[in-house]
């Protein structure tokens, strides 16, 4: 069994307060990065069809790479935290295991996402 810090397990008031707070913060930040993404795709980009070459050109610049890494991170955190909350709502009993699985899965997806993004730079 993985050993997580005490605040990350079970009934802790801190875990509940922090997940609630971080869910709201990540939602607000998602709005910002998604807003920039939509602006870049539909306002800043004037061509009628979004092409692969344009996407590749965009992803070869550092600010856009940072933008999409942040979008990936906040999106994954928000989604997995939401899934965990729904599971607790439904009476989840095995919290330690579930948190462990979600962290591993989230980290793996984040890793795959970042790997895919940096392929455009390399």
């Amino acid at each position: 069994m993985l050993n997580f810090p005490r605040i990350l397990t079970g009934e802790g008031v801190l875990l509940n307060a922090m997940t609630w707070l971080l869910q709201r913060i990540s939602a607000a930040l998602l709005l910002v990065v998604l807003g920039i993404h939509i602006w870049a795709l539909y306002v800043f980009n004037t061509s009628e069809v979004i092409s692969f070459s344009e996407a590749r050109a965009r992803l070869s610049s550092a600010p856009y790479v940072l933008l999409y890494v942040l979008l990936l991170f906040f999106g994954l955190f928000h989604a997995f935290n939401g899934v965990y909350t729904v599971m607790v709502d439904m009476g989840l009993k095995t919290r330690k295991t579930t948190i462990g699985i979600l962290i591993i899965l989230g980290t793996a997806l984040f890793g795959i996402g970042v790997y895919s993004i940096i392929q455009f730079i390399m």
Partner: peptide, 12 residues
């Protein structure tokens, strides 16, 4: 506050 701040308190 600690009683209501537990998992089955306000967070649900």
């Amino acid at each position: 506050l600690k009683a209501v701040g537990r998992s089955y308190g306000v967070w649900r």
